[in-house]
Amino acid sequence: MPLLTRTFIKTALVCLALALVLGILLASGVTNGLFPVYIHLLVFGWLTQLIFGVVFWMFPKYSNELPRGHESLGWIAYTALNIGLLLRAIAEPMQAMQPSNLYGGLLIASAILQWLAGVAFIANTWRRIKEK
């Protein structure tokens, strides 16, 4: 299993654990306004990140020289996804409680980074979707 896949999968597991802890906090009323963060930790941080890692590992070869395509695009996807998610986890509840230009700007950055993660993943994987 390549390093990038291991990193994706381990980070996905951390996101799953964080989401479940957040779920406990939400259910016990300790914290409010974090439901969107909870959902995105599960759907993007856990499921989508796990898929990205496994696809990078198991999809048909890109070429003999570059069997998994351009790995740097994979690392860009990994970094953008996780920084984007982290910014969202910080800025989204803060923006809901006390709106400011700082948190607004962080949300814009988060939106761009999460979008960029998907684009980098698709760019690196598209040509690996092929018939045998």
Partner: peptide, 17 residues
Amino acid sequence: LLIGLTFGGLILANKGF
């Protein structure tokens, strides 16, 4: 995935500004 992320990005950006 691309469509969903684009729409989600617009919604999130709109929360920012």
